[in-house]
Design a protein around this nucleic acid. Sequence first.
DNA 1: GTCTATATTCAGATAGAC
DNA 2: GTCTATCTGAATATAGAC
Lengths: 202, 202
Amino acid sequence: MGKSETENKIIQAATDEFIEMGLDGARMRAISDRAGINKGLIHYYFKSKELLFSKVFEVLFGVLVGRLNAAMGEENHLFDKIRSFVSIYVDAIQRNPRIPKFIISELNRNPERMFKMMNEKKKFDATKVFKESVAQAVENGDIVEIDAHQLFTNMLSMCIFPFIGRPMIQFVTGMSNKEFESYIEVRKTEVAEFIIRSIQKK
Amino acid sequence: MGKSETENKIIQAATDEFIEMGLDGARMRAISDRAGINKGLIHYYFKSKELLFSKVFEVLFGVLVGRLNAAMGEENHLFDKIRSFVSIYVDAIQRNPRIPKFIISELNRNPERMFKMMNEKKKFDATKVFKESVAQAVENGDIVEIDAHQLFTNMLSMCIFPFIGRPMIQFVTGMSNKEFESYIEVRKTEVAEFIIRSIQKK
DNA sequence: GTCTATATTCAGATAGAC
DNA sequence: GTCTATCTGAATATAGAC
């Protein structure tokens, strides 16, 4: 399974190009230039643009799923799960801010693909763990009664949206780039506290 | 300024096509078919694909800004502003669920354009109104101290993200299409209550 | 204003030498 | 495996008849 040097360079270059330009906007020419190799070689290794894209998507999607599971599995108490999820997740996206947009575009473009991958990858259990934890907390009387899916997607929204909607947010709020950076830093802890304040019983 | 029948048909068809396919994915051929007119006519009226796209974007962006301002200006008390914003906004997006994705894609692709439009459209004061209302509520001791931008973007995130990330959310939670519909209905009121619970002083 | 036919450009893919 | 050269198809754009 050892990939050649060239193959790796192509995948890396393709990842950058697809993330920046999307599937339709990406150019094979641009990918070969980024990789510093011949355009024809891409077809030698990956046959077509579509197959190359699939490869890139698989890798990125796997990383995303892995992070979701990791962030959710580490802590026991619901509040700590939430704190852990927010800080790990926002931090991870901050390092690769264009990945969510890429993943979401592709899931919109081709929803069937995700079912295929669902079967291929190890099963996605982050939300199951989360739901159980919410049920437990409700039972213990720690939090108000709330639908776990609503809660989970609220959390996901506040973690992901700022990166997808960054230009919109900067436009609406008038934040500078510098201000946006510290705005994100604040969110690594404050989004979790925002959520916890909302659900905990006093 | 009276637009011809044909011109209007083109704009409507182009709006549908661009929203569904994105700028790169859209085809002039598909637009002329949707409009039921000759392909060459599009160039007669709009010169190029790029200019046609600009036209479509301007219209949609104007609608978005108008809604933001309307939703924010109607109520006086902060909590009612939040309730009003969430219900109006989620409902509006529900009717046209692909608009946010379209707007955000374009703002990412071409951030300069938004500054141009900022000057052309009447100024965007929804957030100013919101900030003042937050400051007032803090002063009155009604809510905890919170940065208005953080609060505003939390609200925006929870309103918009479910539509952008719908396939991702359905994948992660396992919701059916039917379940997703009622999930959105719940959000029209519950997102506002979620926010209010978090910020109000007991 | 609306159509048909055509020009132009360009990207993805292939063939074949080395 | 890597390169050069080329094919093929598609999409935007234009020219010109009506």
